[in-house]
Nucleic acid binder design. Structure first.
Lengths: 194, 194, 194, 194
DNA sequence: CATGAATGAGAGTTCATTCAT
DNA sequence: TATGAATGAACTCTCATTCAT
């Protein structure tokens, strides 16, 4: 079924990456269905034909982008054992999450929506998500023996941080103070871990 | 842009409602971009022409559906003062949220995604969300004086409940026990309100 | 896989037929690969969209055209028992074949080429061809008992007539006299049947 | 239209020939419109760029191939005066035709179709065809004086042989015995020449 | 008012040809 | 001279919207 498409040799690696980067960026900004392949090509500074030298389809670009995003940005490793105490660790978790969200500034929901409409992507997403949950649970266990329901707690904690990040990034509700929200979230997580 | 479109007079109210109900249902099930107007017409048992008697566009149906959804389902009033204590209130909040999610079983993310791509919808969504947050904050204040940062806490609480509902509905992570997750969420909310 | 496409109700039968007629005509004139769907639409006096209301694809139009062509034109029934003698029958066979070829004036080879590239069409073509061969053989048997290898002879006869028709229609070789060619062909067929 | 293209000098003669040979082979196997220039390049073991060093266009390769085919294969000289009698000559004619068809095993119709869509090719084809017809007529005249309408007869004979070859090669009709068909064809040709 | 056939702009994708290396 | 990545016009097909009936 695939006709052309070659991994790469030298500077074309850069080209393929540029297409993913720029294409994914555009998709996140405007929504997958609101941009055309021509848009992507123009934005990436290549021809429409070039896109199909490296990707099977428009969707293929999205998948590549999501893959990268999930792997490198959204679910980075957290098993850094350098933290002295829980407070520091949690603060670091929050900060890095906000940093990551700021950096990508994706329309996160667009992504999540598309992910959930595609079996393959859905599976990938959940695997990554689960990996991080387990990794956090592992970390918390070390620090604090006899923790009950640690997986569930880790899940909740990650959700709290994710939600906080969104609020900070998009700042949808003018009457919520960013600082207070961050503090409260941190305090709640501490309470959870008590 | 507007050509024809009449609010309603008698039994055609029912027709318009049927289009919204069935159309929105389909959109939530399969995704806005994956269904056609013909699909909606067939599913609603009307002709494609009829759709444009009551709606300006395909998107117009979505907006009507979201409006209804936000108003009646997702953000119902919570200022019921019948609760005896916080625990009961929280449990009720959790139960009704899960019930609502179960009832609609929408592809929630699809909705959220589309909402965020449309200024108008986005504003509407946030207003509704904020209304409920305020309403919960108000309720909590009554019950417990001297609560600091109550808006932020209310926001976090609603997020926790929403997240729990999703997990229960879609059950993405096989290793998370529904019961434990519910209990833990409830416990955390109690802690927040301490 | 098929999305839309409805047989027909009333005047749309005419529309579908017009698309086949005109589309097939164009294909035969210019070659399947040298015309676009837009060309067909314009030539048939409909919109491109209309084409896909009645046909799955561009190729589908070709198939419909070929079907009709094979059934009605190229391989008409020959079991007319009204002939008094072989000579008359053969002359009639030749005349009607030339008439048919003149009438359609298709680029016959284009057709045959496409037919041979498509399994389904190929089968259909051979079935029709074979039917006529058998029908002619049957006819000849009646007229003349104890005919050996009658199927093979019928096949050769039909080929001779087909070839004659082409030569007459396209008149490729200026130095061949049409009349003589026709006469010689008829004489040869008579000899075959001796 | 013409940009670059050089006849040849030394070993690149071989390269050009390889492109024609392999390209034409592919075209005959899969059909002109079903293969790409990239396919040809790969199959011939050269780069796509190289093709345009020797040919103006994709079609140019086809023309070169057809030229060679017509000249060397399809219409070989038949003025060999080594035959003792008509029967032997006819048998040899039949055998060599079948051999040729077997050897190339081209999708003959594809060729013929394309030839007829191109004025230039069409003319070339007819010239070659006519040359052979004349050459056969010449041969037959020598062998047998006082032959009337010898050109027309030669034409018919060549057609009979061509048709036989196709039937033998593609064996489309299971109920036709190859041997009988060959015998009958030979017998008919003998009768023609009586 | 209701219908559903008709419309046609615009989508994703292909591939003959070019050209920098 | 040889390469193969790059190009972009042109293709087939879709579908939101219109409108004659």
């Amino acid at each position: 079924m695939p006709k052309v498409r070659e991994p790469i040799k030298k500077t074309s690696i850069a080209k393929k990456r540029k297409i993913v980067k720029k294409g994914f960026e555009l998709m996140c900004q405007k929504g997958y269905h609101h941009i055309t392949c021509a848009d992507i090509a123009k934005y990436a500074g290549v021809s429409t034909g070039s896109i199909y030298q490296y990707f099977y389809s428009k969707k293929d670009i999205l998948i590549a982008g999501i893959n990268e995003y999930l792997t490198e940005i959204m679910f980075p490793k957290i098993t850094k054992e350098k933290f002295q105490d829980k407070e520091a660790m949690i603060q670091e978790l929050i900060n890095s999450s906000i940093e990551n969200h700021k950096k990508y500034k994706v329309q996160h929901e667009e992504l999540v929506s598309i992910i959930h409409q595609d079996k393959e992507l859905s599976k990938l997403y959940q695997e990554k998500e689960w990996e991080v949950t387990k990794s956090l649970a592992e970390f918390l266990k070390k620090d604090n023996k006899s923790q009950e329901n640690i997986l569930e707690k880790a899940h909740i904690i990650l959700d709290l941080i994710d939600n906080l990040s969104h609020e900070v990034i998009y700042h949808k509700h003018k009457d919520l103070k960013e600082e207070i929200l961050t503090d409260e979230t941190a305090k709640i997580i501490i309470k959870i871990l008590k």
